[in-house]
Design a protein around this nucleic acid. Structure first.
Length: 575
RNA sequence: GCCAAUGUAGCUCAGUCGGUAGAGCAAUUCACUCGUAAUGAAUAGGUCAACGGUUCGAUUCCGUUCAUUGGCUCCA
């Protein structure tokens, strides 16, 4: 009999709880579900768990495993269950019990000396939990509510076989190798400084080069696709943020205002109000619509200290923002176009596995129901038109409008939430945006916020991990390194360097008196795409021995040939 | 913000049961002139995160703060 991963993991969670009960008899238990890649269990006890405890608990688990203890189900009445849990002082479990609706079955699973309120199912006996490993300790609020006490959580994972567990652990290792924080340091791309402040990115020359290159690409693509670019200030009067509603809803997450001429100015947490002000700077006719206005707008948000994470969550970031303002008749085509555009941009970076998620109207929402309906239909049709299938997150939209989010899979299969296309029925009302229709009357336009990358910082972090630091040639800050073998080749090497530079290729010259092997090792560490090695033979024939990051040694080539090969890769944005 | 861990040279890390620190890599200099993943030697490099307490003496013990890491909550 084989069991699903969920069952195995859920059973592993029980097994872990059994071991914890044995080692720490005062432990109170909450819940221990399986997750996408493992399981966890939450405990409350006086002992503070340390990483060393994980090994001890694992050992105890292994012992229980070897005993092949059966999981025995029993059904209890509510009163019986209450009595049982009360006698063990399991206060969290009692609360969980109270959640179970009247009339539903109340079941317990016994495994060795550990009995747990649980719906099941489980494996037959502990010997069937193939392979497991405890991974980390964390804190977590009871019921995920920050008002509640914090419990201690142990994360682990389990698989049917040792081999699968091994593969999973290897994948974690692979992800660690690609960590953009590690590579960012190694490749000298960016840093943070305590003197500047947490979550504020310092872009080093190489990182800035990559950013600048894909930003240029972003701008070109936007102009090609009918967008106009805007620039707006970094601060604005408090009145503006009062009108937009930000001060009512997000004041705590905004940087404190600076008082100038007796007026408070806030650093912008969003670009929208500025774009709207530009819209309102003129009386607008339906003939001008749709307007597609984009800006790489840098915003600041006071994110809670505990959530900051490398480039993926920062306090100062640049949104690749755009607002589409159009008539209700135009909205469907506009959305389809945004989606198509987003996909094409992701493809350029080698992301091909993209899934849309549609979020619909939540309980509390602004905007007329017909507008929501029309918006939803246009989102659905756009997804269809692009030949995609979306998952629906019922009631998951923002209070101000429905949205589509895109999740893209990177080179090692991890999903990242990136692009977002959001309707906004709130700001057009608040700012009283109008246009004059064919009928000569004022109408309320549709407004859509959209970001392809989400934020430049986050996108950059994802890119680093996706490429594992080996940026494709069109993005690589250094595309090639000229490496003379001895000093006798320095003169020709300088010639090669100058000529390739003149051809617009970003090459460096490594004229250190190191061995070829040493130079190659360094170039590999720096993820240099092309190594151009020059010895006596190459000087004689006026060629370079080409070694490519991916292909290895590709042989001797003339400068023209190398330049063409590289140019081809750049032009095609080969990933 | 909350729970927990961590903070020693540019990087990766040793170390000090309290007597102010060490390696490898990187850097600099010199020698070497080498054919596809590390040539050798020498030199330099530290307020041991910051501040306070205990102590004759603190990088080490205690406290506070800051930052980072793993989670939780949050993400307009």
């Amino acid at each position: 009999m084989s069991y699903s991963l969920e069952t195995i993991r859920h059973s592993a969670a029980h097994l872990m709880a059994a071991a914890v009960q044995e080692l720490f008899p005062d432990a109170k238990f909450d819940i221990g579900p399986s997750t996408d890649d493992g399981f966890y269990y939450d405990f409350d006890m006086t002992h503070r768990l340390t990483p060393d405890d994980l090994k001890v608990i694992e050992k105890a688990m292994q012992k229980l495993c070897n005993q092949k203890l059966p999981f025995v189900q029993s059904e209890l009445s509510r009163t019986e269950a209450q009595t049982l849990l009360s006698s063990k002082n399991q206060t969290y479990k009692l609360e969980r019990l109270a959640d179970i609706a009247d009339g539903s079955k109340i079941t317990f699973y016994q495994c060795g000396n550990f009995s747990d309120l649980c719906r099941g199912p489980h494996v037959e006996h502990t010997g069937q939990i193939g392979a497991f490993k405890l991974l980390s300790i964390a804190g977590s609020y009871f019921r995920g509510n920050e008002q509640n006490p914090m419990l201690q959580r142990i994360y682990g994972t389990a698989f049917a076989s040792k081999e699968e567990l091994h593969n999973y652990l290897q994948q974690i290792e692979e992800a660690k190798k690609r960590d953009h924080r590690k590579l960012g340091k190694e490749l000298d791309l960016f840093s943070f400084s305590e003197n500047v402040g947490p979550g504020l990115v310092l872009w080093h020359p190489k990182g800035a080069f990559i950013r600048n290159t894909f930003e240029s690409f972003w701008r070109e693509e936007h102009y090609k696709n009918g967008y106009d670019m805007l620039y707006t200030p970094h601060i604005g009067r408090s009145d503006l943020w009062q009108t937009s509603g930000h001060l009512d809803f997000y004041k705590d997450a905004m940087y404190s205002p600076m008082n100038i001429d007796e007026t408070d100015y806030f650093v912008k947490p969003m670009n929208c109000p500025f774009h709207i002000e530009i819209y309102k700077s003129n009386l607008r006719s339906y003939r001008e619509l749709p307007l597609r206005w984009a800006e790489l707008g840098t915003v600041y948000r006071y994110e809670k200290s505990g959530v900051l994470h490398g480039l993926l969550r920062v306090r100062g970031f640049t949104q690749d923002d755009a607002h589409i303002i159009c008539t209700p008749e135009q909205i469907e085509d506009e959305i389809a176009e945004v989606l198509r555009f987003s996909l094409s941009v992701w493809h350029a970076f080698g992301f091909t596995d993209i899934k849309p998620y549609l979020a619909t109207r939540p309980e509390k929402a602004v905007g007329e129901p017909e507008r929501w309906e029309k918006a939803l239909v246009s989102l659905e049709r756009a997804v269809e038109k692009c030949g995609l299938k979306c998952e629906v997150d019922e009631g998951g939209g923002a209070f101000y409008g429905p949205k589509i989010d895109l999740k893209v899979k990177d080179a090692i299969g991890r999903e990242w939430q990136t692009s977002t296309i959001q309707f906004d029925f709130n700001l057009p009302e608040r700012f009283d945006m109008t246009y004059i229709g064919e009928d000569g009357k004022k109408h309320r336009p549709f407004m859509v916020h959209r970001a392809l990358f989400g934020s430049i910082e986050r996108f950059f972090g994802i890119l680093v991990e996706h490429y594992a630091g080996a940026f494709p040639l069109w993005l690589a800050p250094v595309q090639g390194r000229v490496m003379p073998i001895t000093e006798r080749q320095h003169e020709f090497a300088r010639e090669v360097y100058a000529e390739l530079r003149a051809k617009g290729l970003r090459v460096e010259l490594d004229d250190r008196s190191a061995s070829v092997g040493g130079k190659i090792k360094d170039a590999r560490n720096d993820r240099i795409p092309y190594m151009l090695i020059i010895g006596e033979r190459e000087v004689e024939t006026r060629t370079v021995a080409v070694r490519n990051r991916n292909e290895g040694q590709v042989g001797e080539m003339s400068l023209t040939e190398v330049a063409e090969k590289m140019r081809f890769e750049v032009d095609n944005k080969t990933c």
